[in-house]
Structure formats: structure tokens, C-alpha cells
Simulated scan of single mutants.
Amino acid sequence: MAFPRAGGPSFQQEQPFVDAQFDIFDWHPMFQSCVRYFLDHAQYNGPVQALAAFINIQLPFQKPQNPVLSSRQSNSPPGGPTMGHGGPGMGTPLSRAAGKMPMGPHGAQPYCGITLLPYIRRLIATGFDFPAVMHGFFGDDWRAGVGTLHEQERRNYLFAAKSETWLKVKAAYDMGEDEMVPFLRPLQNVSETEIVGAESSWSEWLAMQDWMLGPRAPSRMGHGGVTVKREED
């Protein structure tokens, strides 16, 4: 599996998770699929391990305390002690190699409830959140399962850069002494639509700082229907 540099995904201007078309109940099974793929396949894949080492973040099975070996919390990686790309126990059944994880009876399967946000944040901060990489980490369902989280975290990264100095932003993306982010890169593959959406959201944040809410909210006009309020206003 290679990680070619590819064009960034399209971004809607609506606030992630606030768009009326977003259905959390439709989203959750796709998110579970991404978690299962990440735990059962991606973390045992050689290129994923190499990139994780380069950006200095431990994969779940590498954690010194309470390692997570699979979504089924077994004592060995899925597939048994077969030899595959990346070392012992890394055999890749066809369904996993294809980028999908089986759902199990009734469309559901228990999985270990870990968070994927640290990995999404680290990929964004180091400039590796290309679609091919996101697919390699989270499987075929990554757009439906973690795409909204990815979009929101890209916006958060823009907000962090606008709010604080480089040193404080780096500290915010460190994860303890063992998993400090080795470098920061400006947000990659940014579209004008994404910038306008972030600018509008930033305007709403500045308005809240001034208690311009409810009946005192600024009139909605300008870019995409939202007045852009800048710091000097």
C-alpha cells in the first residue's frame, strides 16, 4: 500500500455536524467500520507503521500500557500467527485487504471503543492527511466514517494557528513526552471553499466572544450568508 499525494477532498461550507443533512445514526456504523479496520488491519500494515513512526505516534498495539490488539480485544492480532507484510501476525484476509471490515450478525459487531482523533489530528498537523493516507488508516468507509471529524479537525487546526503562537500550537498537538509531534506543516490541499467556511465559523466565534448571540447576533449576509467579523471590528 502506497501513500501517493492526492488532491484534497471537497469541503462543504456548512458547519460539520450542524448540517441538517448529517444523521448521527447513519454515521455511527460507518465510524465503527473505520475503528475496526484501523485496529484489525491498518495498525499491522507496514506503511502505516512506518508513517506512524515518522510522525511519532504509537499505534494501539504498541501502547506500553493496555495495548489494543484488535477490535475483538483478543490476545493476538486477527488472522492468527500467519506471516504477512509487516511481520508476524499480520496476515491480511481478502475482506480486510479490500478495505472493508465485516459487520457481523444484524449489522453490528462489538469493538474496543478507542478514539481515532489523535491519529486524525497528527496526520493533519504533519501534513499527511491525504485521501490515500486516510484510506490506508481507516479503510473504504473513511469518508463516511471519519470524513466529518477530519473536516472539523482541519478547521480546528486553522483556528489554533490563528489563535496562538507556533510553540503553543505545537504543545496542543503533543501527546506527552513519548509522542511529541516532531514538526508542524501548514494545512495541506486547502480550497477556497474551506477557507471561506472556516472564516465564517471564526466570525461566529468572535461574535460569541462579544456576546453577540440570539437577538444580538449579527445580520447574516456576506460570504455564504454569514457576515465575516474580524478582530479589528
Score class of each variant (00 low, 15 high):
G147N: 07
L213F: 09
R185P: 06
S191Y: 09
V133S: 12
E204S: 14
S76Q: 09
R154Y: 10
D129G: 01
P182C: 00
F54G: 10
V169D: 03
P186V: 09
P16H: 08
T193C: 14
H106A: 06
K63W: 11
A52T: 04
P9S: 05
D26R: 13
G222P: 00
E153Q: 14
Q65I: 14
V35P: 09
G7P: 09
N56G: 00
P118G: 04
A2L: 15
S201F: 12
L206A: 07
V226C: 12
P29V: 00
L213S: 06
S163Q: 08
S95D: 08
P4I: 01
W142A: 05
L187Y: 02
G107H: 10
S95Y: 12
A207F: 03
F130R: 03
Q21W: 05
M30R: 03
H28Q: 07
S71A: 13
R155E: 09
T82S: 14
P64F: 09
S203D: 13
G176M: 10
W211C: 00
R230T: 05
P215Q: 01
S95F: 13
Q109L: 14
S200Y: 04
Q49H: 15
L206T: 09
Q188R: 13
V48G: 03
V18P: 06
L123H: 08
A207H: 06
H28R: 13
P4C: 02
A161V: 07
E194T: 15
P60C: 10
P118K: 04
L69M: 05
G87Y: 12
G89W: 00
W142F: 11
L158S: 05
G145N: 00
Q12F: 15
K63V: 10
S191Q: 00
P105A: 05
I114G: 06
T82I: 13
K162L: 11
R72T: 02
G79D: 11
M180G: 13
E194D: 15
H28W: 08
L206R: 05
M212R: 05
R154I: 00
T165Q: 07
Q109K: 14
D233I: 10
L69R: 07
S10I: 13
N189D: 15
R155L: 08
V181Q: 01
W211N: 06
V228Y: 14
P88H: 06
M134L: 14
L39T: 05
Q152N: 12
L51C: 12
N189V: 10
Q21L: 14
M101D: 08
I195M: 15
Q32T: 03
E177T: 00
F138Y: 13
A160D: 08
A98D: 05
S10C: 14
L94M: 07
A20R: 08
S191W: 01
L51S: 07
F54D: 15
H150K: 10
A207G: 02
